[in-house]
Design a protein around this nucleic acid. Sequence first.
DNA 1: TTGCCGGTGTTCAAAATTGAACACTGGCGG
DNA 2: CCGCCAGTGTTCAATTTTGAACACCGGCAA
Lengths: 218, 218
Amino acid sequence: MARQKNKGTFDPQDFLATVNGGRTILNHRKSDVIFEQGDTADAVFYIRKGKLKIVTTSAQGKEAVIGIMDVGGFFGEGCLIGQPLRLAAAVALTDCTVMRIDRATMMKILQKEPAFAELFTAHLLTRNSRIEEDLVDQLFNSSEKRLARILLLLANFGKPGQPEPVVTKISQETLAEMVGTTRPRVSFFMNKFRKLGFIEYNGKLSVHSSLLSVVLRD
Amino acid sequence: MARQKNKGTFDPQDFLATVNGGRTILNHRKSDVIFEQGDTADAVFYIRKGKLKIVTTSAQGKEAVIGIMDVGGFFGEGCLIGQPLRLAAAVALTDCTVMRIDRATMMKILQKEPAFAELFTAHLLTRNSRIEEDLVDQLFNSSEKRLARILLLLANFGKPGQPEPVVTKISQETLAEMVGTTRPRVSFFMNKFRKLGFIEYNGKLSVHSSLLSVVLRD
DNA sequence: TTGCCGGTGTTCAAAATTGAACACTGGCGG
DNA sequence: CCGCCAGTGTTCAATTTTGAACACCGGCAA
């Protein structure tokens, strides 16, 4: 079982690193599709390394990024409450390593191991509040502010470290999908931000804290 | 403690009905504010009776309804991951009875009682997928479709029962906040829907399943 | 009865956003 | 070297959305 040698204890981190009943480790290259919208949903995933995006495609073919998941995050949880199919695709943004956990295994372990359940609940709460913020952002703010916010978030603002926040290359197309607008709009505002000295970019992108003024003004 | 007489067992429903360490029952009248945006966040709430809305107000004074919570739902969970202040207000839509659970009590019980944790996790997952849907709706659909969707959801579509779905009175202003648009827009589309026979309303509102065509078309 | 008031129906110009188009760039494989 | 191509900068008309305004309709208290 998912139990360690020192019997009687349970370490979630160890559980999430060990291949065993119902758990497998998968390696993906950048841009790989981990699952596709419409696939049958019978497992939850945990990210051990890398970053990925969750993308939905509308009937008209428009795409929207509804989440960027990072190390330590879970995704594909919808299947735990009876969603039979994936409502969105998961696409690797970098090379990444994920652990796949069967739905049944996941449910069992959530019941049996409070320490694990706690970890998972914390993830859900965090994710919850992030989506709520995204929704509010969408409802209240112009695309200019939304873009500024996304750039700041990508640059890990709020987290310690990174005195000069740099984001790895990301296309305007993807930014547009994340912000919920069109590419020309992103291009327009990126240039505006650059002219104002809020960001710099040639190949890489660096975001200055002065960009905050865009989000905060008015 | 939160333990029943028949020692050794734990019934979440019973727990959520019994006043005891860290738990209190509160009764609210329609339109009462259960907590305000900016209040200190030190408790989670569980709805035993009634319906309420979660509302955020922007710096510019615009309001947005980011959730309608019903019997059996939790709200105010943000405090469990260190949000010190309420990011939104909770306002009763009907008379309602809620149980207030101290943050500390909630965290303890989540650790100690798997059955309760399971209930809570299920709530989080459901809420999660609903907000995601709301976000996607906002990103993809026009205000006309969004209004149609909200009306259908209010009429409890998807749930069994209600052959002729009727919604209790709700102002166009509130609808506008839920949909994320302006009141004139709501007025315009409501009349359009009425003319097309998708809805009826004098005092009460009834929603026909034919309204689905608006959401599905194109 | 009168006057107030919340909720509604409607209009309209201003502003934001879309979507499609076109030219330009730099890298990369052949 | 050349051609291809993804990503970018830019334009612009069409469409959607906003925000403010005004009139109308009950109900209800004075």
